[in-house]
Design a protein around this nucleic acid. Sequence first.
DNA 1: TGGATTTAATTTAGACCCTAAAATAAATAT
DNA 2: ATATTTATTTTAGGGTCTAAATTAAATCCA
Lengths: 402, 402
Amino acid sequence: MASQPHDSSRHDNTLAVIRTLREQGPAARVDLGILNGISSATVTSISAELLQQGLIAELPPDTPRPSGRGRPKTLIQLAPEAACVICVKLSINELQLVVGDYSGQMQHSEHHSVATLALTPADLVALLEEKIAEVRSLALASHRRLVGICLAVQGVVASHSGTLIWSPALSFRNAALAPLLTERFGCPVLLENDANCIASVLATQPAYAGYPNLAVIMLGYGIGMSLLIDGVPFLGANGSAAEFGHSKYQPGGAQCACGKRGCVEAYAGDYALYRKAREVLELPAGDSAHPSEAQMQALTQLAMQGNPDAQRIFAEAGRALGYGMANLLALFNPDLVLVTGSGVRGYAAMQEAMQDAIDEALVSELIGPTRIVSCPWDRDMTCLGGIAITLQATDSQRLTES
Amino acid sequence: MASQPHDSSRHDNTLAVIRTLREQGPAARVDLGILNGISSATVTSISAELLQQGLIAELPPDTPRPSGRGRPKTLIQLAPEAACVICVKLSINELQLVVGDYSGQMQHSEHHSVATLALTPADLVALLEEKIAEVRSLALASHRRLVGICLAVQGVVASHSGTLIWSPALSFRNAALAPLLTERFGCPVLLENDANCIASVLATQPAYAGYPNLAVIMLGYGIGMSLLIDGVPFLGANGSAAEFGHSKYQPGGAQCACGKRGCVEAYAGDYALYRKAREVLELPAGDSAHPSEAQMQALTQLAMQGNPDAQRIFAEAGRALGYGMANLLALFNPDLVLVTGSGVRGYAAMQEAMQDAIDEALVSELIGPTRIVSCPWDRDMTCLGGIAITLQATDSQRLTES
DNA sequence: TGGATTTAATTTAGACCCTAAAATAAATAT
DNA sequence: ATATTTATTTTAGGGTCTAAATTAAATCCA
């Protein structure tokens, strides 16, 4: 007459406590209760279990406490050494590897220059295996158990099957990367879109919390997007992120890297801006189909300094972005649109034309209450997001299994 | 030492049982258990409560049973007389009122021709109050308790506040209709987008179930859309449906009813098709800015019969639709797109151009596994959906209160 | 210095809800 | 008539939560 715990409430509450600790840092049991709408008696019970499993630890009480009457709070925090995850970011000509501990903090980070477009599928897998093995030994040296690996890539991914469908960083398509790595390293491997990783981080920041429908647009070589509904990335049929960059501005318009014409990206992606600029401006030489950060900064400088040709190019990009945004607003009607990515460097030069385009495209009733703001770009954010997503996935998995 | 039932599982299970009965009709306790993943002991307990409240009834056992061994199933069903709801559909020049019983069946339906565009806000409210009062007395005559009213309208609605933001059927904007009617009739009044109503019905049909991300496009005078995620309408910041019709095909293009240019609707809405057609074809006279069903059928006939001018017009509309669809696929990546509404009459004449436009706009990786199919149009579907939504809302409310 | 007060964490007692198993019910098969 | 089968109800018990009571650990104040 026993029963399996078909009841999910303990499971949910445990996850909520862990998530709160990871997002907000050390907290007292009372506060964890209030924050998650459960009684502190329950938090006591949950934290006892987690302590016993070594996943959390009590903070020594000598920490500077907010003075006040009453028994002082005993803060609990995630035990960093309880586990670790590795996040690998694959972007054009670069590979970043980051090790994160169980509290979600970055433990180690390294960058490698790689001619990604020249890789074959086998090359890529070999490279990933080699580099991951290296950082894994680092992690294992400090007695941390590797519980998951995350591959964060630009492009279209089928996250459920772990297949990379298409990425601007690679010259091949449809590679089932995750299953191969799972087998090699014996732990779950997630394949995630880079925009989803960043959006997951941004959504937890106080400034952007409280917006149930959030769109994060990533400007860069290409243009990506993530749609978060109540903080969780919306994955369509593909299991991929939304492809804002390939929504249309002008049927039959400019040539896009995807092979089609008229995509927003073909006007506002780095390569598109640089391509146009080279026609009329003196700019640093180099692979202008894949402009470097230095090249893009040179171009952006020109626009900021008032060069009319450069300004015209950014304005046209802003207009394309604005029309894309108009479609996003009409179809998705988000509460907040965040514009970020390395391409925000040129946002100031695009913003006015973008806003004009939105006003030209949509009646105010359809623009609704949506706010559009830009947000500074941090190159480590992708991996931090990947780490957070992976930890959350493995926590959830562990609880459902046991 | 008592506790409020903060636990939601009974609540959820009760709603699930009611929903299953409403969608699938009479069912046995065992099957309700299997269908909803709960034990039949729990179903027994839940159905005992519902029987006691008079919300369900056991079917007399003399119904033709599927022969077989063992104790026969006792089917239970929702008690139609337990409650009723009224759904009012407001569309251009027409008002439909439907009474639905607790099982979700249509009890009564009536149509009224009304020059909706000539109404003032006060006129509209007076008209609604009068007509609703009429059908309410019908319902009350059969001893049914009116538990909710649904207003289903074309256009943009803020469903949380009950404000009609903008509708093509009306010449004014921003009317807080629901609060007024709530006060007048003393029951919850929901304001819903018509596409959401229809989509809610379609999503429960076996043929379209099992698609977690479903887009329903409504062709008609204007073009509406509803996005369902796991069967529930996605409401953005506005609380409104997605406005596919006003996504852009051609910046600076054809004049749209919304006041802007280049919207998909300005090419593929009834008024847009008829406007173009009148330039080159002999067609029935009448208010060609608001073509009647007869006028649209005449135009559609011409295209079906091979008239090249008519065919060209539909092809251009299909192309606009295709580009809009491309953006929908890029941004939302639904599993299934259903095209319906009165405008499906012309779907055959648009389909090829539409498909070509999608292929022209998007690489196959971004089209992904999405299927696009049309679906026959039934003018009562909106109200049936409104009734289902309202019953579900009032059931849920009742349970959370008690 | 020592109670009074305040706040945090834990323990206790009880309610709710679910499930598996047992019991009961109601049919068909032989 | 009895065995078998399937549905429903009853029973017993476990899990989880919460409110209240208790315990713990500090400050306040005389």
